[in-house]
Design a protein around this nucleic acid. Structure first.
Lengths: 236, 236
DNA sequence: ATTAGTTCTGGTCAAGGTGACTTTAACTAA
DNA sequence: TTAGTTAAAGTCACCTTGACCAGAACTAAT
């Protein structure tokens, strides 16, 4: 039916290939201070181009899954994690992102809770890096990580997203640690408390966290819903 | 080289096709009040699926252009317009967006100035609609328009984007009309003036707009740069 | 048992921004 | 000259925010 020449023409005019990648954020205690810091998992490339460099987890979009499902799946496959928050970041489609072929990457970003992140797969080819100290990455992935970081900081400052780093119950000091880790600056505990407790999505519980060598802090709960992306809108 | 069977398998596992669409906003005077309101151009579909329904301008991504260039091009092709602002909106990739085949659409949104919009092509198959009164559109384009409207309102309230609806020189009342049209509510002129003039990106000129039957308003100029999307970052 | 050390929690205060409103300025049309 | 219009400046009360202070509640050391 098709001649060889027709196949060549077909390949030339074929649409660019589509890939999904994900920037996965988790808080892990710093080696030095023990205070939480931002980490992301990367995978080592085992083939050209950019063989042996680190890259964002990702892969091609298979035919029978939505974009968000694809992101969720390769997040599960590379790290074994289920995200507590998942949102589309951007579609990157520059002409020269990959030297061999034209690739359009639809990138998602995710937050995972530290309890999950602790038991994440780590291997020869999957390793966690501090978000501000990933080295030279494959493709345009440095720019992608930078943009994801910018979006995370933005959403944290405006939206109510910090709680997806934490478990169901948390202290206000833990929330503050999230903000301090992501925004990379100290916040006044008293003022921070005032702001957080004034948002209606935060619910005071009767429980307290015992075990610290100081006054036991009250535990709170988050009662809000994620966001209003097109993907998340129709799931109320 | 390829057998017919191989072609079938190839087509089945082939990536979804990639399309670019654009939501184009412009302010045009309302028929009734004469005050500016939000309009968008739509194109009539001339083939199945959704033949004869109105849809967002768009088309396939050709091999040799970036995503933003593709959006710019089909904006030019369908309306003859050059946008004063162009930003990626979202990548829509649901499984059943198109009944016949799997399509992933990367959607942009644009602002054009009314001087441009006035001489925009309009024909049997291209027509402008009030943004809040597009009827039933093809595909998932109603949801896309809704989301674009939400993003426009959001960006207007926070970012400094209103000026892309206007020419180089403008009065503060014109800026206020943009806000009132997009946000669909009245704003106090005095307070609005105070806010706008306090932003450093707004520059007072020595000129005044003559011709009104009232005190001539001062003309201002916008001196800021668009935004910090990945596509626009590297063009400082 | 007492004290020191820690964080939690509630409070004050001044500065700055916002919404509602008033007043004066500067033009045109009658 | 006057009425009508919008421009532009100013006032006032209210709220949010950052900086700071002090007492409360627990643990660990003396």
């Amino acid at each position: 039916m098709y001649t060889s020449a027709a196949n060549v023409a077909e390949r030339r005019s074929a649409p660019p290939s589509l890939a999904i990648s994900t920037v996965i954020f988790a808080l892990r205690p710093s080696e030095k201070s023990g205070r939480p810091t931002l980490w992301i998992p990367l995978v080592r490339r085992i083939r050209e181009p950019y063989k042996d460099l680190w890259a964002l987890p990702g892969g091609p979009l298979t035919h029978a899954e939505s974009l968000q499902d694809a992101a969720s799946r390769n997040l599960q496959e590379t790290t074994g994690l289920a995200p507590s928050y998942l949102e589309q970041l951007y579609a990157f489609g520059g002409l020269h992102r990959s030297p061999s072929q034209r690739v359009v990457s639809i990138v998602y970003w995710a937050l995972v809770q530290p309890t999950e992140a602790a038991l994440a797969d780590e291997s020869e080819n999957v390793r966690w890096f501090r978000a501000d100290r990933v080295g030279d990455l494959a493709f345009d992935h440095n720019a992608i990580v930078d943009y994801a970081l910018w979006r995370l900081r933005n959403k944290l400052a405006y939206g109510s997203i910090a709680y997806h780093f934490l478990g169901e119950y948390f202290t206000l000091a833990q929330v503050r640690e999230v903000y301090e880790a992501v925004l990379d600056r100290q916040l006044d505990p008293a003022n921070f408390r005032r702001q957080i407790t004034s948002t209606p999505e935060i619910e005071e519980t009767g429980e307290y966290l015992q075990g610290g060598k100081h006054r036991p802090p009250r535990l709170y709960r988050f009662t809000g819903r994620p966001g209003l992306d097109p993907d998340n809108r129709s799931t109320p």
